[in-house]
């Protein structure tokens, strides 16, 4: 392996801009990636450690996964998180696509201000949106005793509010590369306005929609701060649950549950990226 690399290095001597081949840069890169990944990898590794004290390796076990699976409130939080993310993603993607098409296609009075308004949820600090949502739902008297899943409604609304402008940005970026002559060609060949959208614009937009949906999903699943202010005792999400657990101690169960969430998000990301790559290659 090392010998093969040495041979490769001899065959391909480094040029002056091949920074990946210079040791100070390699060191920086390696240190950065270790810094970024070591904590997560250690977390995953020690979710399999057969010790409560969580420090010394005492052998492989999956008992903390069983424990986490047996922890009803943890599972409930998990299901809540996925439900919220699912609904929020669908609505955010649709709203985001509408905004993207609106801003891409139309000129209208006050457009610059409208764009600025749409960018607000992206730029304002999470904490501000969180407390605003808290005050808003308290003020309108949002009922707190709804049956599941309706009781997640306020969290879902809050999540959509900060997700769909992000989705709009991603979808609009894709639309920007659209050749409008394709649309005109479809119209020229006899397609109606709606048929043109269905047959030409939407298929082109698909990778953008996938990317926007993925972003909305991750934002929702990832969110702690805004949920923290909108969730009640019966509507705990996974991050909120982990937060309350972490405040007390570091336990292998949290490691196990976190590992499951990491795997789920990585899995979904990988699928979405594949879908995106495939449609991107077709263009």
């Amino acid at each position: 392996m090392i010998a093969a690399y040495r041979r490769w290095k001899r065959l391909h001597p480094a040029g002056p801009l091949d920074y990946t081949r210079k040791w100070p840069m390699q060191l920086t890169l390696a240190a950065t990636f270790i810094f970024l990944y070591a904590p997560i990898l250690i977390l995953i590794l020690f979710s399999f450690n057969d010790s409560r004290r969580n420090i010394v390796w005492r052998g492989f076990t999956t008992k903390y996964y069983e424990k986490a699976l047996g922890n009803e409130s943890l599972i409930e939080a998990f299901v809540n998180s996925l439900t919220i993310a699912f609904v929020s993603t669908i609505v955010s993607t649709i709203l985001g696509a509408m905004v993207a098409i609106l801003l891409w296609r139309f000129r209208f009075p006050g457009k610059a201000g409208y764009e600025g308004g749409m960018a607000l949820p992206i730029v304002i600090p999470e904490i501000c949106l969180g407390v605003a949502m808290l005050a808003f739902f308290a003020r309108i008297g949002w009922p707190t005793d709804l049956p599941w899943p309706l009781n997640l409604g306020n969290i879902i609304i809050a999540h959509i509010s900060f997700s769909f402008p992000f989705a709009a940005v991603v979808i609009r970026a894709r639309l920007a590369g659209f050749n409008r002559e394709l649309e005109e060609a479809a119209r020229d060949l006899g397609a109606s306005e709606w048929e043109t959208y269905r047959d030409v614009v939407l298929p082109y937009l698909k990778p953008g929609l996938v990317a926007g949906a993925l972003l909305a999903f991750t934002l929702s699943l990832d969110d702690f701060v805004i949920t923290f202010f909108t969730s009640g005792p019966d509507t705990v999400t996974f991050p909120v649950k982990v937060y309350s657990m972490v405040r007390f101690s570091v336990t292998p169960e949290v490691n196990a549950a976190s590992t499951v969430l990491i795997v789920i998000t990585l899995f979904l990301t990988a699928i979405a990226m594949r879908v995106q790559n495939r449609s991107a290659k077709r263009d």
């Binding site: 997560i40 977390l43 991050p239 570091v250 490691n255 990491i262 990585l266």
Partner: peptide, 19 residues
């Protein structure tokens, strides 16, 4: 490798740092 942490829950990453 740079983007991947974006897809990992902020709370989990903070928790990992505590450990």
């Amino acid at each position: 490798l740079v983007i991947l942490p974006f897809w990992t829950n902020l709370l989990i990453r903070t928790y990992a740092l505590i450990a």
